[in-house]
Structure formats: structure tokens, C-alpha cells
Design a protein around this nucleic acid. Sequence first.
DNA 1: ACTCCTATTGATAATTGCTCTCAATAACAC
DNA 2: GTGTTATTGAGAGCAATTATCAATAGGAGT
Lengths: 139, 139
Amino acid sequence: MDVKRRLRSRGYRVTPQREAVLEVLRENEGVPLDPEAVFEFTRERYAGIGLATVYRTLELFCDLGLVLRVHLHEGSQHYEINTGKHHHHMVCVSCGSVEEFKGCVVDELEESIREDSDFVVTSHCLSLFGYCPACLPAR
Amino acid sequence: MDVKRRLRSRGYRVTPQREAVLEVLRENEGVPLDPEAVFEFTRERYAGIGLATVYRTLELFCDLGLVLRVHLHEGSQHYEINTGKHHHHMVCVSCGSVEEFKGCVVDELEESIREDSDFVVTSHCLSLFGYCPACLPAR
DNA sequence: ACTCCTATTGATAATTGCTCTCAATAACAC
DNA sequence: GTGTTATTGAGAGCAATTATCAATAGGAGT
Ligand SMILES: [Mn+2]
Ligand SMILES: [Mn+2]
Ligand SMILES: [Zn+2]
Ligand SMILES: [Zn+2]
């Protein structure tokens, strides 16, 4: 694992809790999970893990760039493994299903901003809302 | 006021609390405020207003389309008067200042999605993060 | 393998942002 | 003015997240 090295090189320790959380996120590639869901899945691998540890681990992994925060504008934050492929999400306002889409025009947008404004953009957050194919017929 | 008419026509009542909140939002056009800030400003006009009333009023105004919810991805929700001009925001990760930008490429994006996917997009949420001109020199 | 230092953990308390409840109040149609 | 009922303020309640802290355990050094 490259992750173990990355943790240790920054003074962090490799714990079974952290390994279990990482496994869960990897198994759910493409499915943004909230902390409660990560907690439940991780308990199946490491029964004694505490919810606070899940929160702490998710934040650490975000800092390390292993994991990405996803804002689906629901009650809680969501997280997904960072595959390196930039993308965003479409959320069905009817059933809550989440679909990825790759084409992100924001890179172009950032350029046009560099012209209009003196603001230097370093990141962005984009989510789309609407109806998934399954929910479309019902209005 | 057109707003009074709009409220009454839907069975809502025109109260001094609602008028005070609307005034505050109008005075702060271009400055997304969180409920606590709206509360504090409104108290200067209507000292006895309760925080719950502010929350209820903001939600009502959103439903009526008078006010827009702004996700700056801070702890709390933000709100701004709806001027009818579609735009998004850039947030300085250093000082927290918020700047508007008009050019939104998402409309084009929604089109390309209509081709790639069966998902029907009805709305979107976009925010940009980076450094404002004032904060740039200091890294 | 043993020791020591200290990062990490789990349980739980505390905090935050927001919503609900309910009796008192006040719009406003008549 | 009167009556109906939408609205209000105070405070309880709630859900997500963060802080606290004593106990535990990773792992570098021996
Ligand atoms: Mn994704
Ligand atoms: Mn704005
Ligand atoms: Zn759906
Ligand atoms: Zn700044």
C-alpha cells in the first residue's frame, strides 16, 4: 500500500480503524457515503470502531487528498474515494439517487473569471439537481 | 409594494416582521447573509423579532421566489434577495469575502448532459473558491 | 522482545444550526 | 368592531458534528 507510507511519512500512524475505513470507501467507489453509512459499513470489518473515529478519519483522508468531500445538499456531508478523475454529481430530487457526470466545464469557466476578475480560483463545487430516468415518468 | 400583494394573494399576511426582514435583505443586495446575521440586522428595525421567525420568513421568501438560498459551504445557509440576474459566488478561502460572478456556463453544461445522460437537470449549485485580490499577496 | 513516547481511540458531553410545539397575539375579511 | 385563523416568540427538541479526556496501542529506538 502506498497509503501506509503516506500516513507514516507525515507522522500519522497506520491503525486498523483507518485501514477499515479506507477499504469501505474503496469498495464504494462512485457512491458518495455519509459518515453514518461509513460507520455502519466499517463496523462490519472492525466492530469496535467509534463514530468519532470515522469523522476524524474522513477529515484526515480529505487532508491527505485520499478522499473527496461531496456536497449533495442533504442534511449530512458525503465522502468518496479520490480516483483522480475530476467529476461532479447529479442528484435526483425525487428518489435521491446520485449519478456521476464527467464533463465539467468549470475549467473553462475559471479561465473566463481570470479575465473578468482579480479573484484567483483554486477549487469549485458543483452539483446538479433534477430527475433520474426512473423518476421522470412520475412528473 | 408588489410583495404585499403577492403575500396576501396567497393567503399570507403582511407583518412588520416580514417587512423588516425583506428590508434587511434588500439593503444587503449582493451580500449573502446567514440567518443569524439577518436576525441581528432585523432586530435593529424590529427589536422583538425572534430567531425562529427569521428562519420561517427566509423559508417563506424562498418559496415565493423573493429570496435565493446560497450555499457557500460554510456552517450555515446563506440567503440573498433575488434580483432576477442569475449568478454564482466566489468565496475567498482566506478572508471569507464573497464576490459575485455572472457568467454561468452551467446552462450549456445542462445541454451537454441532456445528450450524455437521461437525467433531466432542473437546477444547479455552483460555488468557486480561491483568493481575493486583497488576500493574494499573502500567498 | 521490551520500553517509552505520544498519536489515536471510544465513550460521552458539548456545540451548532435548525425545526417543532404551543399558548398568546395580531392580520384582515366581513 | 368582531371573529377567524395565520403568525409570533420562547423554549424544547433534534440531527450532525466537534471537543474532551482517560485508556490504549503504534512504532522508533534499544
Ligand atoms: Mn463521484
Ligand atoms: Mn449574490
Ligand atoms: Zn430518481
Ligand atoms: Zn480574501
